[in-house]
């Protein structure tokens, strides 16, 4: 393999890694604050693509408006799920909220199947994003670059939000010690809703980037990206944003390089990721960047 082609795969892997990373951060943020594996996250991801799709085709919005519309509606959906299904169970045994999350995932998939239909739909990709640049022999699609640029901007914004704003401080406080933070007068409901809003916005954004890359959308499309991203979050150490991003990169690279070097094994890529997950759980259960338990 020539260095050019390798570089091309590398850039592809980075861009895919960013997408996984953005989804994974959604899992990690929510887990950090409410200690819940938000099973419906992958389905929120899926819904975002449909919101954009219908904004564009049904409501005849211009493309950029459809994207904004999609993100906003997805945020409402994510916050709504928390309000309806998770908040009433916040003080219930943890297994109950886990059941609620699984139930919501099931519900959203089936609502999507009934309302949108089970067949694949083509997601509109603006022609400007499909153009291919050749930089020093390396062929890179515009969408790949756009993904990287958008992700970096979003991550910078997110870092600012978490490190420098009051809301971010509240989120961090809740994730360190829920009960004490509550006693210190942090508005728990608002902070959690905000966390879900951020998580959903990230899901929507990554979903759009994903759909621009693989422009087929259907009600179960969120299952695998969602699962891979969760794996990324565990590999990085759940609760850690840097870890989630790193895990995302790792999976992005594994996926792309596997397809590049061992095309015959490409069908097994999720199986390989799965084995990776199991090995990480055995060797370093708290993940690469996870905090050590006090044990």
């Amino acid at each position: 393999m020539s260095p050019d082609v390798f570089l091309q795969h590398l850039v592809n892997g980075i861009s895919l890694g960013f997408i996984f990373g953005l989804i994974a951060i959604g899992y990690t943020l929510v887990y950090g604050v409410v200690k819940l594996v938000n099973f419906a996250h992958g389905d929120v991801f899926m819904m975002a693509t449909f919101f954009v799709f219908y904004g564009f085709t049904l409501f005849m919005m211009p493309w950029w408006l459809a994207v904004i519309f999609g993100i906003v509606v997805t945020i409402l959906l994510g916050v709504g799920i928390e309000r309806i299904a998770y908040r009433p169970l916040r003080d219930a045994p943890r297994i109950s909220s886990l059941c609620a999350a699984i139930g919501m995932s099931f519900l959203i998939q089936n609502i999507a199947t009934v309302v949108f239909g089970g067949r694949q739909k083509s997601f509109y990709v603006p022609p400007s994003l499909t153009t291919t640049f050749v930089i020093g022999g390396v062929r890179i699609q515009a969408i790949t670059i756009a993904t990287i640029v958008v992700s970096v901007i979003v991550l910078l914004l997110l870092t600012f939000l978490i490190k420098r704003t009051k809301m971010g401080l509240a989120m961090r406080a809740l994730s360190v010690d829920f009960d004490t933070a509550k006693l210190m007068g942090i508005n728990v409901n608002r902070t959690i809703a905000f966390t879900f809003a951020i998580g959903s916005a990230l899901a929507a954004l990554s979903a759009i980037l994903w759909a621009l890359r693989y422009p087929q959308i259907w009600p179960f499309m969120g299952v695998f990206p969602g699962w891979r991203a969760f794996t990324a979050a565990i590999i990085g150490g759940i609760g850690s944003i840097v870890g989630a991003l790193f895990g995302g990169f790792m999976l992005g690279m594994v996926t792309i390089l596997l397809v590049a070097f061992f095309p015959e094994a490409a069908g097994y890529r999720d199986a390989i990721i799965f084995v990776l997950l199991v090995v990480i759980l055995l060797v370093k259960p708290t993940g690469l960047f996870g905090e050590k338990k006090s044990r």
């Binding site: 299904a85 059941c99 139930g103 089936n110 199947t113 089970g118």
Partner: peptide
């Protein structure tokens, strides 16, 4: 096409859990 049936089940499930 048969989504409706599963949708009803999913709704029952979520309502039960909550």
């Amino acid at each position: 096409i048969s989504g409706m049936r599963m949708l009803i089940f999913a709704l029952i499930l979520v309502i039960t859990v909550i």
